[in-house]
Nucleic acid binder design. Structure first.
Lengths: 193, 193
DNA sequence: GGGTGCATGTAATGGGTTACATGATTCT
DNA sequence: AGAATCATGTAACCCATTACATGCACCC
């Protein structure tokens, strides 16, 4: 019967609505918020944010208030309208789309035979470094955020998403160690022959 | 000194070169290979593959041989040229680019306060189901692939990338369980009040 | 008769990053 | 003196998915 699936995309727009559900903010502010809080699993660039905010304002989902400032461009502070909050809620209830995230390091390792053991080890070590650092950061944030935002009603949800980062980075570091041992074993075997 | 960073993109092209380093294949075959082996961390659609193979052929990195078939379109079997293999090796040595993978489920959970506990639980449960199934698949593949490709020189690398899937899905399932408990606790608290 | 697998491709559309462009203030 | 922070935005480009278009063979 011809069910047009309609794709329901526009996640960027909904991410912005979500950011504004926390507090009214400028485009710049949204960028900062995203980087500092959900930067490990989400990103938006200015090239997306500014045009999207305009569109949302035109559609009546957000409201713009302009603040004049000394020595700086005017600040456009956006806030959610009732309709905007409704649209956010509607979207939140929809099942989350899964996507295949591209992992270039794994791609290179998959074709690792075409390269050398040294190169493969380097890739894994770099990956390990990255995720070890990330893991430490998440642990630090797990302590600092409850202090800085004590009693904030969004806090429990923020901590949940952070905790996923903790779990994930631990798992990735463990995988790196296992894989590095395996690569060393391969190296030893090659030498023996 | 004007060091144009040049961005060195074209990962799709290099993924194709990598696929062809395993064996000569058609565009269709590459798609199948990618889905079955690295589908958990990489994807390429026909809309990318076919035009990219043409470009690679024009650049002399791959060679096309046409096989006629009965009742099917001609099959274009591509294989790596020496230059293609060189280009693949060169790319493999370059550090792997990190990317922020978008996780829509986490995004929704981050704004979870705007929604209901029920909805948030549903999201986490769905996520858990997905990754539990994935984990089982990876474990099954860890057994079947060494049998099916016993002695294959690429095998150790394939298993390494698979193992990351195993580690990751375990971690994600553990996080889901922890988070579901947390959400239940919040629900109980809400009822008590 | 209908679904799945093999096999090719293009065009429209949508998403997203990066580079460019500007400029005062404040911290080191 | 120079870097970082605040603050706006556009345009060019790259990348990627999806829908469309075609069609035989084989199995149930």
């Amino acid at each position: 019967m011809d069910q047009k699936k309609k794709r329901e995309s526009g996640t960027t727009a909904h991410a912005l609505l979500g950011a504004l559900s926390i507090a009214p903010m400028s485009g710049y502010g949204i960028r900062m918020l995203i980087q500092q809080s959900i930067g490990h699993f989400w990103n938006e660039s200015y090239g997306q944010i500014y045009p999207a905010l305009r569109r949302l304002a035109k559609e009546g989902l957000v409201e713009k208030r302009t603040e004049r400032q000394k020595g700086r461009p005017d600040k456009h502070v956006y806030s959610l309208t009732e309709r905007g909050r409704g649209e956010l809620r509607r979207w939140l209830e929809l099942p989350a789309a899964a996507s295949v995230p591209r992992n270039e390091m794994l791609l290179k390792l998959f074709f690792g035979r075409q390269s050398s053991l040294k190169v493969n080890q380097r890739h894994v070590r770099e990956y390990r470094k990255r995720h070890e650092a990330a893991g430490k950061l998440y642990l630090a944030m797990m302590k600092s955020i409850p202090r800085e935002h004590a009693g904030h009603p969004d806090l429990p949800y923020w901590l949940m998403t952070l905790r996923l980062g903790v779990h994930e980075s631990k798992a990735l570091v463990a995988w790196c160690d296992e894989t590095l041992r395996e690569l060393e074993k391969m190296e030893r075997k090659r030498r023996e022959k």
